[in-house]
Amino acid sequence: MNIFRLAGDMTHLISVLVLLLKIYATKSCSGISLKTQELYAMVFLARYLDLFSDFISLYNTVMKLVFIGSSLAIVWCMRYHRVVRRSYDRELDTFRYWILVGACFTLALVLHEKFSFQEVFWAFSIYLEAVAILPQLVLLQRSGNVDNLTGQYVFFLGAYRAFYILNWIYRYLTEPRFTRWISCVSGLVQTALYADFFYYYFISWKNNAKLQLPA
């Protein structure tokens, strides 16, 4: 484990904590896309099928459980919590995300490291994670105003991706046989999707102003 990987995992964890904090403290999920959260729950369930078959480290196992548990908890809150679900921006969150699921699964059937149940679902989860933020970005764009915690949530998610790219560069240079093209190419696509958001995030931060995305 190198410092970039650790920084990536920690910013990922912080993003989840920020989102849980927002929902818990404000009892509101306004500005949060349920579709993106459902996609993340699918991503973690599909990727961590190896949870009980391959033990890597206690750290890995705990983090996997945290990501599966938190994503399911967030989906549950947004759908069923008596108070929280009322603030869900249903009419703005209309991204047809089943197209993403179908496209990613088809791609995983074609492009994978090995044709096995676990490997196809692993590739599927990598492709789906790359595009899972799209419903969230569309929702932010539509609502225009972004509250602080929601902005920070997306910022930390983007930071997590950026650190993972540094991690891969580091591993590529230090580990002779590190070639994981599926992760790396998907990771680059995923990080690129945040570029626009980062641009406006830094502008608002520089001007000390509320984050606003252009319509």
Binding site: R5, D9, H12, D50, D54, I56, S57, N60, M63, K64, F67, E113, W122, Y164, N167, E175, R177, F178, T179, R180, S183
Partner: peptide, 10 residues
């Protein structure tokens, strides 16, 4: 150990 086949990232 085959580093490239171990899914050690999250």
């Amino acid at each position: 150990r085959e580093p490239s086949n171990v899914k050690d990232e999250l």
